[in-house]
Each structure stands twice: as C-alpha cells, then as structure tokens.
Amino acid sequence: MTAALLTLTDMTLGYDRHPAVHHVSGRIERGSLTAIIGPNGAGKSTLLKGIAGAMSPLSGTLARTPGTRIAYLPQSAALDRSFPISLFDLVAAGLWHRTGAFGGLSHKDRHAVHEAFERVGLQGFERRTLDALSGGQLQRALFARLILQNADLILLDEPLAAIDTKTSADLLAMIEVWHAQGRTIIAVLHDMQIVRDHFPQSLLLARECVAHGATVDVLTENNLGRARQMIEAFDEEAHICAQESAS
C-alpha cells in the first residue's frame, strides 16, 4: 500500500480566469516516477507550476503531504546567463534549505557542492561563468543543483529539450538514481520513446486529464488521438464553465 504524496481534486489552473488545466483529479504516489505528456498548449507546464506552488488553483484543491520538500526545474529559458556569477555559486544555491538567505557554506557544504559537480560530470567547471557554457553543460549544472536540494518531490519541465543523446542518457540515469532513492519525480516530456523506456507512470494531458496510470495503458493510439482533438482554441468570449456554475 503506497501513500499519496499529492492529491489533486477537480483542480483548475489558468491565467485571467481562462483555464489552462481544466478539472484535473488524480493522485501521485510517493516514490513514483511520472511523465506528463500532451500536445503543445495542453497545460503541462502550468500543471507543473501548480504542483510546485508557483500558482494557485482557480478552483479545486491540491493537497500535498505536509513537510514535502519540493525542487522545481523550470524550462531553462528563465535564466539570465549574462549575470557574472560562477557556476559554483549557481549550483551552491541548491543548499538554500541549509544556508537560507544569510548562512555561509561550511567545509562540508563545499565538499557536497564539489561532489555534485563530479556526479554530473562537470568537475573543473566550478569557476566558469554562465555565459561560457553550452546548453547541455548548463542543464548538467542545474541537475547538480537539484542533487543538492535533496528534495522529496522533484519537478522537471522539459529537462531534455535541446539536449544531445549522451547528455540525455546521463540525465536520465540521474533521474533513475533519484527514483531508486525513493524520491517522487514528475517530468514534462515530449519524446514518447523515452517515456516508454524510463517512466513507469504517465499522465496524458490535453487541458483535461485524458489518461493517467501505467505508461503502457496511457500511451495508446486511441488516447493520443483523443488528446490531439481535445486541444481547442483559447476563446476570448468563453462562457463561465458549466461544471463551475453547477457546483
């Protein structure tokens, strides 16, 4: 009997009252490894943001087991790579839960940061600035930061976008290590083959939840076709949702 780490009940997330994720319910089990898949505009990133607590539901609820430590890796475009700090400082920020805004790094902490660099294969890159890195190296560094965050729930938004096969394989191996350590992982992905090979659970999203469960049951031709059909255009004149007015 596994326990639910996250319980979504009829949750709607959106922008300016327009839903991007519509009436989604479901449970994420502790220790599960779940891929969120779906067409562009399906609300995958929005759902991840909602789970991370970066936006609150328009309606419905999201219940997290109290004390769950969350690490959230957004799509990497948000980073200002011209800002002149070293890769070491960026990665060491993963220890925020220990240092807070003011605390210094202990000898042990510094050692942990160097170890994280080694685990992602970036040893020797500590003093580089962010603008001197390739996209793959930066993604490795962000994974090193995730290692230091030591979170129970790890949320990854398209972690393998624009990443070569070698780096993808390394990052996937790291995700599997986290899975083996009993952490709960939810990742937004586009590559169905990777989802089939590495992610036991899947959630197929097309603004509504099309299917959620074991990946083999979710990734059927029928489900994928339905998902494609369900993506409707954003309607400026949309009426108040019928499910909402009924309740």
């Binding site: 991370a52 969350i70 948000a78 980073l79 700090i85 960026l90 930061r145």
Partner: peptide, 8 residues
C-alpha cells in the same frame, strides 16, 4: 540570475 528558482 534565476528568479524562478528563487521563488521555488
């Protein structure tokens, strides 16, 4: 550098 990370 990384406002989204800080928010998290």
């Amino acid at each position: 550098v990384d406002p989204a990370f800080l928010r998290s």
